[in-house]
């Protein structure tokens, strides 16, 4: 279980995160949702260990990680633009971490991952030849090979279009289930957050606006911000979809 206790962070005197406390259960998919500049990326960087907290504690399985350096925490991340090494091919990227720790994943485990993410046919390709969705899957595989205790995903879907988006969503869910992996996703898209995760944490202005299951957030928005910015957006989308499918819905209603 990951616990944050009263975590604070300021940049040049401007507070970015004010007193954040939260618990995340093992195997849970949690989305951190908020507008740009709300502090969600900083929160991700704090958990990963790229930046140090000014105050408070980060605890994982009763161990205080607040002052533990990034590479010793055992967490890992897939960046928004994937950060794949352009001078290596797909397979070399996926197995990059094994050069340093060969025992971390077995041959079969790597092959399973490649199969699960559907990357068999791309293994010898150079990174520049891949599409966005393929890059995302390679980056995911490269990170999973390291068997992270927590998987962090920074805007995993924002660079992808339409159908690919949905299929990557499924892959992320499958991986989290298959490996019973705690997954933390940063996103600015309410639809993405609410359809992908077990629980959603909405951040506004460095503070947690609401942290709960998707249905709770829809049913009981706790404050004006959640209502105005999160639900409103979904409402507009819903209405657009209803208008599009108006004919079909009427037919269905008549059948019933």
């Amino acid at each position: 279980m990951l616990k944050l206790r009263n975590v604070k962070k300021s940049f040049d005197g401007t507070p970015v995160l004010k007193d954040i406390s939260l618990d995340i259960e093992d195997g849970e998919i949690v989305s951190i949702l908020g507008p740009s500049g709300c502090g969600k990326t900083t929160l991700l960087n704090l958990i990963l260990g790229i930046v140090d907290a000014d105050g408070g504690q980060i605890i994982y399985n009763e161990e205080d990680l607040t002052r533990v350096p990034m590479e010793k925490r055992g967490f890992n991340i897939v960046f928004q633009d994937y950060a794949l090494f352009p001078n290596l091919n797909v397979y070399q990227n996926i197995t990059y971490g094994l050069r340093n720790n060969p025992e971390i994943s077995s041959r079969e485990e790597v092959e399973d991952l490649i199969h699960l993410l559907g990357l068999e046919e791309h293994l010898n390709k150079r990174i520049g030849m891949l599409s966005g969705g393929q890059k995302q899957r390679v980056a995911l595989a490269r990170t999973m090979v390291m068997k992270p205790k927590i998987l962090l995903l920074d805007e995993p879907l924002s660079a992808l279009d339409g159908v690919i988006k949905e299929s990557i969503k499924d892959r992320i869910k499958t991986i989290a289930q298959e490996y019973h992996l705690t997954t933390i996703i940063v996103t600015h898209d309410p639809e993405e957050a609410l359809t992908l995760s077990d629980r959603v944490m909405i951040i506004n202005d460095g503070e947690i606006a609401q942290f709960g299951k998707p249905e709770e957030i829809i049913a009981k928005p706790e404050n004006g911000f959640v209502k105005k910015f999160i639900l409103n957006q979904l409402e507009i989308k819903k209405n657009n979809i209803y208008t599009l499918f108006a004919g079909q819905l009427q037919e269905q209603a008549q059948v019933c």
Partner: peptide
């Protein structure tokens, strides 16, 4: 140079 690659490299256990 994209300096974020340094983070990736460290996370992958590079010396």
């Amino acid at each position: 140079i994209d300096k974020r690659f340094m983070i990736v490299s460290r996370l992958m256990g590079d010396s």
